[in-house]
């Protein structure tokens, strides 16, 4: 156990450092003279596994164990939260992309390579109906955690392989958490599953599945992990993701006749101004916020 943990920690740290330095390098290549939006688009169509050399502008293979191409999930405008009215800070025109960790380059480090290899073996051997390359969109290693982005139609296949393959054996699925990224067009809604393998000494893997807001369907994995029954109902309730094949997908936390899905970003928090000793405190979503 102890011997296993140490290298994990070490690689985790090196990954963080690697990611951050690469991300800042990307920022520098974009430079102050280029609009940030161009920098954002230039990172998107990159071949995974290559980085632009700063001096020659040449594409070079990325260092192993790094995540060279950050993914743009949104854009931050201005500073100090001055969104409406006159901005006197001088930062109103600032646009900075929100960069999430990009596709990792082999080797991933820690036990992550073994999991990827085994899953590839299990899927390609025909146990499921999809090959590894088809089912797994990309692999992200960040902060000592492995994330597999799974194409939604292949989620049950991957989940079954993760549970049944003796070398993977993730017995527990600790539920699904939804995340709403309104700026990621065509993949606004994310369902995030965390798997735990007790057999293999507490290994964890994150499966992330995306679906567009216009077609919010993801196959249910309740038949594979029955524990996900209530978790999927909660994610439907809060985000409006429809888990196809769920035995009874009804609201669970909100009342049955509730309109809307409260955890979406476009759903207001609500609240009323509170008057206290002559001053009025606005509701939390209307207070000054720093972005």
């Amino acid at each position: 156990m102890a011997e296993e943990k140490d290298p994990k920690q070490a690689t985790a740290n090196s990954n963080i450092d690697g990611t951050q330095s690469k991300a800042s390098a990307q920022d520098k290549t974009a430079g102050p003279d280029q609009p940030a939006s161009q920098a954002a688009t230039s990172t998107a169509p990159n071949q995974p596994g290559t980085v632009v050399d700063r001096e020659s502008g040449e594409r070079l293979p990325a260092q192993p164990g790094t995540a060279p191409d950050p993914v743009v999930v949104g854009e931050r405008r201005g500073m100090f939260g001055a969104v409406e009215g006159g901005d006197t800070s001088g930062y109103g025109g600032l646009r900075s992309p929100i960069l999430f960790p990009g596709t990792a380059v082999r080797p991933y480090g820690s036990y992550f390579d073994e999991i990827a290899d085994r899953l590839e073996g299990a899927l390609d051997s025909g146990a499921g109906d999809a090959a590894y390359g088809e089912a797994i969109e990309r692999v992200v290693v960040d902060r000592g955690e492995l994330t597999l982005f799974v194409r939604r139609e292949h989620l049950p296949t991957v989940a079954r392989a993760m549970r049944d393959d003796p070398a993977l054996r993730f017995e527990l699925c600790t539920g699904v958490s939804g995340v709403h990224y309104p700026h990621e067009e065509g993949r606004e809604l994310h369902a995030v599953y965390h798997l735990l393998s007790i057999t293999h000494g507490g290994r964890r893997v994150r499966l992330e599945v995306t679906c567009p807001d216009s077609d919010p369907h993801i196959p249910s994995i309740v038949s594979i992990y029955p524990a996900n029954d209530w978790h999927e109902r909660e994610t439907w309730d809060m985000f409006g993701i429809e888990f196809d094949g769920h035995p009874a997908l009804t609201r669970i936390l909100m009342p049955d006749d509730w309109p809307g899905h409260p955890q979406r970003k476009d759903y207001p928090l609500g609240g009323i101004p509170v008057e206290y000793k002559g001053a009025t405190v606005p509701p939390p979503d209307q207070r000054r916020s720093y972005n």
């Binding site: 951050q20 999930v73 949104g74 931050r76 929100i98 960069l99 999430f100 960790p101 960040d142 902060r143 955690e145 994330t147 600790t174 539920g175 958490s177 995340v179 709403h180 995030v192 965390h194 735990l196 964890r204 994150r206 955890q263 916020s289 720093y290 972005n291």
Partner: peptide, 30 residues
């Protein structure tokens, strides 16, 4: 810094996990 993380503790009732997502701001994105 932007990204996501999952941490779990053994609460008296079982695994209490927390999945947080940051978009680089001063507040949790999720």
């Amino acid at each position: 810094p932007p990204g996501q993380a999952y941490a779990a503790v053994e609460s008296p009732k079982g695994e209490l996990g927390c999945h947080t997502v940051s978009d680089g701001g001063t507040r949790p994105y999720r």
